[in-house]
Nucleic acid binder design. Structure first.
Lengths: 200, 200
DNA sequence: GTCTATAGCGGGATAGAC
DNA sequence: GTCTATCCCGCTATAGAC
């Protein structure tokens, strides 16, 4: 049936995204992904020729999602403080769907793709957007509004405070011995918590 | 030669630590570890009977190192502010040696060990030490000295801000397009940066 | 486009020689 | 204690039937 043309292909990508970034199964095999998707494993090779090829494809998709998360905010014409809040909310929202996104990005799996220059290059307009935001940060810093010593520290602070709780959720659940529900409440409080830290 | 008794065993553990936590090779095989250590692969099975067994051993060692990093500070009789600084310096120092420690801890590999209760239980005196520090945090919070809404947020903030830059170093080096040396300078500035954020 | 069958390889594990 | 040889299994990949 030609109707299923790209549907199966998309299903495989979506499933791989789920297995990697939602469930954090970093060592997932093609068999696991095929089983989860409910398709025959050979279909993965039919659509993506090889395991690495699928992984690179998924990585490119993740890369785009990740970048869009920021780029959608950078150029908005709103007060700086509001923009930062939106950025944090945006990062947290993304990680509620894909808690293990960064875990994956920081692992060797991805570096294979990047080393071979298989990943999508960053378009000019996206670089412009980032630079625009960067300049805003510099401006706010010079006015003494921020609790940071440089733009890079400021940006690192935002990411650290927003992302780390997701990465460490499994560990923290054990250490603090709290329930999944309580941890969700904790994550809900994070945006205000982080805003309180970043500004003077 | 009976001289080599425990030397080879220790060499294998040290090498595994290096491969996992220094190089971040999360999927390392016994072959890789054996090659890096310069020993025959069967020796791993001779000393540790199985791959999982070695991994659990290494995990327990890492677990201990990680805990000691905190426990050495918790009970010190010094001003709170100084204690937090020492804690941050201690965390950063540990991650300068083992940048990928947390990456590993947050991955499924470890969970196998913990689920099977193979890991070392936390001794009573260590729990006491943590609780002691926790109470100090509560006290400082009640005095309004901290920029945090709860002890758990405060502790999460310390860890997030200290650890995340190490996890994301490979990614950040690419994004910001800076050299390893410059990133080291950046990491050196972190302690002061973090201290500036945590306190009112 | 989807499936079955099969080839081929790499990693874990064990037996046995030295 | 250390090494070689070997077995077994799971995973990737491909050929070919439907």
């Amino acid at each position: 049936m030609p109707v299923k043309d790209c549907k199966t292909e998309q299903l495989i990508i979506d499933t791989a995204m789920k297995v990697f970034f939602q469930e954090g199964r970093i060592n997932a095999t093609t068999q696991e992904i095929a089983d989860t998707a409910g398709v025959n494993r050979t279909l993965i090779h039919y659509y993506f020729k090889s395991r690495d090829s699928l992984f690179n494809k998924v990585n490119d998709v993740a890369d785009k999602i990740y970048r869009d998360c920021f780029d959608q905010v950078y150029l908005l014409e709103i007060p700086f403080r509001q923009k930062v809040r939106l950025l944090i909310e945006s990062i947290i929202k993304l990680h509620e769907e894909f808690p293990f996104l960064e875990l994956y990005l920081s692992t060797g799996v991805v570096q294979i793709a990047l080393d071979n220059n298989l990943s999508i290059p960053v378009p000019e307009d996206k670089i412009f957007a980032f630079n625009h935001f960067y300049k805003e940060v510099e401006h706010e810093l010079s006015k003494g509004n921020l609790k940071a010593s440089s733009p890079m520290h400021f940006l690192t602070n935002i990411l650290s405070l927003s992302v780390y709780p997701f990465l460490m959720r499994p560990l923290q659940l054990r250490i603090y011995k709290i329930s999944e529900e309580k941890y969700k409440d904790f994550l809900e409080e994070r945006t205000d918590e982080i805003m309180g830290l970043l500004f003077r």
